[in-house]
């Protein structure tokens, strides 16, 4: 634990992976520290799952190295993976087991004692909402239930590091919210959560840090507050008026702090030169020109905007 506090929990350095001639990962580097909820974003085929599978030692990198709690999982999987939980994307679980049996088997893989396994299984089935389904064969589970069980499996060893590949895919909104809260709680308990997801809203809500990958290259890595800052050149004010005139548009365009004004029906999109809340100034200007203002909103950048800009920049 002392070693953990002085070094990152996950270290990925200059990771390069080829599939034949195709470069799936191109010198990818990032670190994840204790207690972070790290969102790993990227479009389909960007290299997210390849990164995760390399982190788990399932793939051998052509260059670079991964360390989980300071240990390389390719060289010493027993030590490196002992304190790690992993839930794959759209998992296929062993259908010949019941949920309880599979959890018990995984508990044995981690060397948990019989009594500890029993208690943990009960607790986890309750946590993921499968208490009534524990003694049923997994073949009878729905996709969402398999996904929940997969998360329970990832938690059987009470891991320090949790790696989740699209964890809430296939879940209903209620379950998604439940697991979102669970990941936040786990992080508050000092666990490190690494989530690969394309659900930007989900990432924005729960992640403390974000990594963005596109075409095998990292295009951003840092705190979520920084990503919004880094990809925000301007803020936008959206105004709805009773009537929009050409004179109004041209007057607003002439203002020092306005970059551009775009009109669509009776709505105006006013792009500001700076990241400042200038709604007061804009509304005064509209009133001065006898405009009737129906609504005025400051549109700050969302993670989705930042993500799209990052991908554009990374191409």
């Amino acid at each position: 634990m002392n070693a953990l506090s002085s070094q990152p929990v996950i270290t990925v350095s200059k990771l390069t992976k080829f599939y034949g001639d195709f470069k799936a990962l191109d010198s990818v580097s990032f670190t994840v520290e204790k207690g972070w909820v790290y969102g790993y974003l990227g479009p389909n085929g960007a290299g997210k799952t390849t990164t995760i599978r390399t982190m788990l030692g399932l793939l051998k990198p052509n260059q670079g190295e991964v360390q989980i709690t300071g240990i390389n999982p390719t060289k010493d999987p027993v030590q490196a993976l002992q304190s790690l939980g992993y839930a794959p994307e759209l998992p296929t679980l062993q259908t010949f087991f019941t949920g309880e049996q599979l959890l018990d088997f995984m508990g044995k893989m981690f060397g948990l004692a019989t009594q500890a396994r029993k208690e943990k299984i009960k607790q986890l089935l309750d946590l993921v909402g499968l208490k009534e389904w524990g003694d049923k064969k997994i073949g009878k589970y729905s996709k969402g239930m398999v996904q929940r069980l997969s998360i329970a499996l990832a938690l059987i060893n009470d891991p320090l590091v949790l790696i989740m590949d699209e964890p809430t895919i296939g879940m209903d909104p209620e379950a998604t919210a439940h697991f979102r809260n669970l990941f936040s709680t786990l992080s508050k308990q000092g666990k490190t959560v690494f989530i690969s997801s394309h659900l930007l809203d989900e990432v924005q809500r729960i992640c403390t840090h974000v990594g963005m990958i596109n075409r095998g290259r990292m295009v951003f890595n840092g705190p979520i507050t920084q990503v919004l800052e880094a990809f925000t050149k301007q803020w936008v004010i959206e105004a709805e008026l009773k009537k929009v005139t050409k004179r109004m548009i041209s007057a607003l365009k002439k203002l020092d702090y306005v970059e551009d004004v775009k009109a669509e029906g009776n709505k105006l999109r006013i792009e500001l030169k700076e990241k400042k809340d200038l709604r007061g100034e804009i509304s005064s200007e509209i009133f001065k020109r006898k405009g009737v203002l129906l609504s005025l909103n400051l549109h700050k950048i969302t993670l989705e905007d930042a993500y799209l800009r990052a991908l554009k920049g990374g191409q």
Binding site: G57, L58, L81, Y86, P88, T92, L93, M109, F110
Partner: peptide
């Protein structure tokens, strides 16, 4: 079935 990923991501060589 992809279960090798689950098995080999456990502490086993």
């Amino acid at each position: 079935q992809g279960t090798s990923d689950i098995l080999l991501s456990k502490p086993i060589t």
